[in-house]
Amino acid sequence: VTTYKLVINGKTLKGETTTKAVDAETAEKAFKQYANDNGVDGVWTYDDATKTFTVTE
């Protein structure tokens, strides 16, 4: 299990959150659900070296 980070650069929501997941794909699903629940819809990137997803509106 690895800790992944999400950086949110939204129009109305900015911040960070983390999740523990077995792989990046599982973390991405959780983060996309989180973003959707919070009304954030943007461009996604992922940096494997830092295990960090970024979504920018």
Rank of each mutant, 00 (worst) to 15 (best):
K51C: 07
G15F: 15
T19A: 08
G10I: 14
E25M: 13
Y34E: 02
T2R: 08
N9V: 15
A30L: 14
N9M: 11
K14D: 05
T50Y: 05
N36K: 15
W44V: 02
K14S: 10
D47E: 06
V1F: 11
N9C: 09
T3F: 07
T52D: 01
D37Q: 11
A27C: 02
D41T: 15
K11H: 14
G39A: 07
N36P: 01
E28P: 00
T56W: 08
A30D: 08
N9I: 15
K14M: 09
L13S: 09
D23E: 04
K51D: 03
T18R: 06
D47P: 00
K51V: 04
T18S: 11
V22K: 11
V22F: 13
G15T: 14
A27W: 01
N38C: 09
G15Y: 15
D41Y: 13
K5W: 11
Y46M: 02
T50L: 08
T18I: 11
T56K: 04
N9L: 13
G39S: 05
K14E: 06
E57K: 04
D37C: 08
G15V: 15
T52G: 02
D47W: 04
T45H: 11
T45E: 12
V7Q: 06
T18D: 05
E28M: 12
V22D: 08
T52K: 03
F31R: 00
Y46C: 01
A49E: 11
V40K: 02
K20S: 15
D41C: 10
L13D: 05
G15K: 13
T3I: 13
A30I: 13
D47T: 05
G15N: 09
Y46K: 01
D23N: 11
T50S: 11
A35S: 05
I8A: 03
G42W: 07
N9Q: 15
K5P: 01
V7H: 05
F31L: 06
Y4E: 01
N9H: 12
G42S: 02
K14A: 09
T3G: 04
D47N: 09
V40S: 03
T3Y: 09
E25P: 12
V43G: 04
T3M: 11
K51R: 11
D37K: 11
F53T: 00
L6S: 01
V22E: 14
T2G: 08
A49G: 08
N36H: 15
V40R: 02
K11Q: 09
A35Y: 03
T2Y: 14
A21H: 03
K5Q: 05
K32F: 06
K29I: 10
Y4L: 00
A49Y: 12
I8N: 01
N38S: 08
K20C: 13
T12K: 14
K14G: 06
E28T: 04
V22M: 14
I8E: 01
E16F: 12
E57T: 08
F53I: 02
T3P: 04
A21L: 03
T3H: 07
T2K: 11
Y46D: 00
T45V: 09
K5I: 13
V43R: 06
